[in-house]
Design a protein around this nucleic acid. Structure first.
Lengths: 119, 119, 119, 119
DNA sequence: GTGGTCTAGACCACA
DNA sequence: GTGGTCTAGACCACA
């Protein structure tokens, strides 16, 4: 994974992991990669992953089993709600970033249509 | 202005200023606020504004007149191109952040419609 | 048994076992559960119980008979003294943790009265 | 400060700091010691203090001003509530640790009276 | 000077 | 092997 500057590494990994959880690539109840393993994969220090996991645990998206690893929550309802919040957040951030430079709703939708195929 | 954490202040001010330039609130050829004045307005240290102006000058969106201050470029064509790039960037960042969690183009457009009025 | 974080499991089991010994639930001279059995009951690794028993043996609260198992001491006087020490310890730890935030002795006693029924 | 084993350093510092906040030794709105300064005082690594401050900030007992330091909340009502919770917690932990080894409420109160002067 | 992030790496409890 | 804590210390953004 290639990290942007101007956004902290842990934030980027957190977003990445959340998206995997929300899309079900990391399924409810599934074991997450071990801290050290994930750190190697991401080419970061284990402590950075410790922070990522701690933050997601705080939000109850994942939970710990002592010495056994970290697991995606199996609270489907919570996942549904958090996913919805996450998306709404992204949408609103986007809209407020771009609104002033566009004419109206349709203008933005056109941009979406033009670029949807290219990402 | 309220700053987010996890993104540097100067980046946030740069975006803010670019948007004012692209929307014409800061018109082509217009004088920008003096560093100290802008710093007071934004409640940041003057050094932060120095960096912002330097970065925008680097991108040729603004230029210096020695002792006279900083001015928005009057190269309309450059403004048009940069604005377009800026918007496209935002659109693509948004799309790639959200694509995996949505079904299709229409799905995203619905989110836009739902939230357009609330930002 | 539900373990707290921020305190090691073996410490928590040690306290639990001591209390059973001091209350006589594990009577003087009585045989303690076998390591494996106790480990299963507590849902911990046998090594953890090995450590617990070793520590209590160190304090002479329990003793080994080679292949026959571990037994609660039958030194009643020692039990009396250790129980008393244990309680005094708990009381003093509690008092020093809370003293600065309370007005006086009576204040603490009121807290005891208020909460005695709810634990 | 002398740290106990079997309880993490950061937990002990957190409790220490909370108590200072609840007693008003660190008054509402007051600036807390700088991370590095406090680390030197406590003879621990700055990162440990970072964690302590982060945890208390999470609980809204303290707040950050970028590059200016950390401050005790001035939300008096929140302080009152959290102090009350903290004390109740300590009292209940104490009671459940000692209840089985005592006869009744009065028995415990006697222990409090006996030891109050000696802590 | 102040906090935030990150790395390298050690040591521990527990399985 | 797995996570948790802690240290030493670097580098950055910001004041």
């Amino acid at each position: 994974m290639q990290f942007k500057q101007n956004e902290t590494i842990y934030t980027q990994i957190e977003k990445y992991l959340k998206k995997r959880i929300f899309t079900g690539e990391c399924a409810p109840g599934e074991r997450l990669p071990a801290i050290r393993e994930f750190a190697v994969l991401m080419k970061v220090n284990p402590n950075t992953i410790v922070k990522v996991y701690a933050d997601l645990e705080q939000e109850e998206l994942i939970f710990s089993e002592r010495t056994n690893g970290k697991f995606v929550t199996d609270n489907i309802e919570l996942l549904r709600v958090e996913k919805s919040k996450f998306i709404q957040n992204e949408v609103r951030d986007f809209l407020s970033s771009i609104k002033d430079m566009t004419e109206n709703e349709q203008d933005i939708i056109n941009y979406i249509r033009e670029n949807y195929g290219n990402v």
